[in-house]
């Protein structure tokens, strides 16, 4: 089972919900936590896993064999991302534009292009309080997060419960992270920003045909328009978390809510039951 936690808007409490949910599931089924917010992975600050292995993740980029290349320019013509330019007797490669599609090496008439791996980030694996933990960390200055997210998701344990922490937004990294989920929890806040971005996230999940429900965080600040929207759209509200200074303080120190306020463990268990009941 794959449950992803997403939001559209950043800073609504995705990581809070994801880690507390994972920590509340101490049943018999193995739990795997996958932090797919590879640009800004934060879950480890709360889960404090012991990292047991680190793996470099790269994308294949072209390498030109100068002896075989006859500068025909076919590779530059094929490349949809303008990552190759052929000028006079020189082939220029722009690795940050390359998507690693492999077209140039496949179609070079001279067989002059091979591929070499360029690191874009790392994956770290470990464990914490009975949970298997995996996250990706994108290298600073690297623009493309999706291949790294794909690599994190290859670690999904198909026999257990997988909790995925999704990056904010609605574009490619989000799609890559939520794709294949059995259910997606959308965390929002009751403000105009929260609502606007919730609507975008809802559109995204509907397009991907992933069932979802909403958690309203800091539920007592703001207005009631998120509630009105959910009622109108027939969207399930799974949980409400009030604004409390203790919660904000615990978050600021990297402490899960359930450690600070143990009564929340039952509430997160209920959230899981609620999610499970809504997976067809």
């Amino acid at each position: 089972m794959i449950i992803s936690v997403a939001s559209g808007k950043g800073g609504t409490g995705k990581t809070t919900v994801a880690i507390n949910l994972a920590l509340s599931l101490n049943g018999n089924i193995p739990v795997t936590f996958l932090d797919c917010d590879v640009e800004e992975p934060n879950a480890y600050l709360f889960l404090k896993p012991q990292i047991k292995s680190t793996q470099s993740i790269g994308i294949p980029i072209p390498e030109i064999d100068k002896f075989k290349c006859n500068y025909c320019g076919k590779c530059a013509e094929i490349c949809a991302y303008n990552a190759i330019a052929v000028v006079k007797k020189q082939v220029l490669i722009f690795p940050e534009l390359c998507h690693g599609c492999g077209g140039c090496s496949l179609l070079c008439p001279e067989g002059a292009i091979s591929e070499t791996e360029k690191e874009i980030g790392i994956i770290e694996e470990g464990s914490t309080s009975g949970i298997s933990f995996i996250h990706g960390k994108l290298n600073i200055g690297e623009p493309m997060a999706t291949p790294l997210i794909r690599a994190v998701k290859r670690k999904v344990n198909s026999d257990g419960i997988n909790i995925i922490d999704v990056p904010p937004g609605t574009s490619c990294p989000v799609i890559e992270a939520v794709k294949g989920s059995d259910f997606c929890i959308l965390v929002t806040e009751p403000t105009p920003f929260g609502l606007n971005d919730l609507k975008l996230a809802v559109e995204t999940l509907r397009k991907l045909k992933i069932p979802f429900g909403v958690v309203i965080n800091r539920a007592d600040l703001g207005d009631s328009k998120v509630d009105d929207y959910c009622a109108k759209e027939n969207i399930l509200i799974l949980m409400r978390i009030p604004f409390r200074r203790e919660i904000a303080m615990a978050y600021s120190k990297g402490v899960p809510i359930i450690s600070e306020l143990p009564e929340y463990k039952e509430r997160f268990k209920k959230l899981f039951d609620n999610v499970q009941a809504n997976i067809k």
Partner: peptide, 10 residues
């Protein structure tokens, strides 16, 4: 600006 450190941020 957007959140994150990836392509739209750059």
């Amino acid at each position: 600006g957007p959140p994150g450190i990836g392509c739209p941020v750059i």
